[in-house]
């Protein structure tokens, strides 16, 4: 008996905190942590809407579950590649601070 809005507010807040983390932490792993939090907020959102949708429709719905599963997969893929990149960059540049990785700077 929880209002849908509570979940949405929670998800928005978690997203905002994650965004803040991703924007401000200097360490590249910190950025990745922020992104993970944002993805988690998205999952909460998707499943809250899934619940709402099942309730409205009265029959089981699968789209929301599928979307949530895809987000999980993408999050896992993103973390593994991201961390591997950070470790590889750390090995070459001896830093995990994102601002020092500016090889692409023109």
């Amino acid at each position: 008996m929880i209002p849908l809005g509570w979940y949405l507010i929670f998800a928005a807040a978690l997203f905002a905190v994650g965004l803040f983390t991703a924007l401000t932490r200097k360490n590249a792993i910190g950025i990745l942590i922020g992104v993970e939090m944002m993805l988690n907020a998205v999952i909460v959102n998707l499943l809250a809407f899934w619940h709402y949708w099942v309730q409205q429709a009265g029959v089981p719905q699968l789209d929301g579950l599928t979307f949530a599963a895809i987000v999980f997969v993408v999050a896992a893929a993103e973390t593994s590649v991201g961390l591997a990149l950070i470790i590889s960059a750390y090995r070459r540049l001896h830093t995990a601070v994102a601002n020092d990785m500016d090889l692409l700077k023109g």
Binding site: I29, L32, I33, E36, T79, L83, I86, I87, Y90, H94, T95, A96, V97, D100
Partner: peptide
């Protein structure tokens, strides 16, 4: 992530 933090803890 914890492992990555431990692996990259260094100078900076």
């Amino acid at each position: 992530i914890l492992f990555a933090v431990m692996l990259t803890r260094g100078l900076t």
